[in-house]
Amino acid sequence: MSKSEKVVTSEYKTQNNKNEKNLKMWSAAWAVSMAIAAFAPKYVWAFDTLITIIAVVISLGIGFGMLLSNRRYLRGLDEMQQKILFDAMGLSLGVGLVVGLTYELLEDIKLITFEPEIAHLVIIMCLTYFVGMISGHRKFQ
């Protein structure tokens, strides 16, 4: 191995890019299937029960496909990248649990008048995850 070798062919990098691309495809497919399951019953097939059940089952199946793809992606990362990701996921889960339960409590104790939305919790968890990822990368930079 010499410094003059311009192209560094890394099996790790190639496999990682492949796994990442695969995960992005599954995630996009899942987002589309969720949108179809959420909006199509009202706007496309007028709440036809059978078609709606099929759409939900397909969305669920694609969701599990995405989970498997995510598992493959995680296992393909090296140990430091895994640590950064697991730390971020742990932080996101912890914050999601604490904030989610508190948020739900706010309505019960009449501190808010609107009904808590799961989407708000997902946004909080996503933001926490990204903060965790950025701080993890900075920590080991």
Binding site: M1, K3, E5, V8, T9, S10, E11, Y12, K13, N16, D78, E79, M80, Q81, H137, F140, Q141
Partner: peptide, 14 residues
Amino acid sequence: QAQLASALDVSRQT
């Protein structure tokens, strides 16, 4: 660093 990373099958950042 990239060459060593490739040899050890990890990322350059690691």
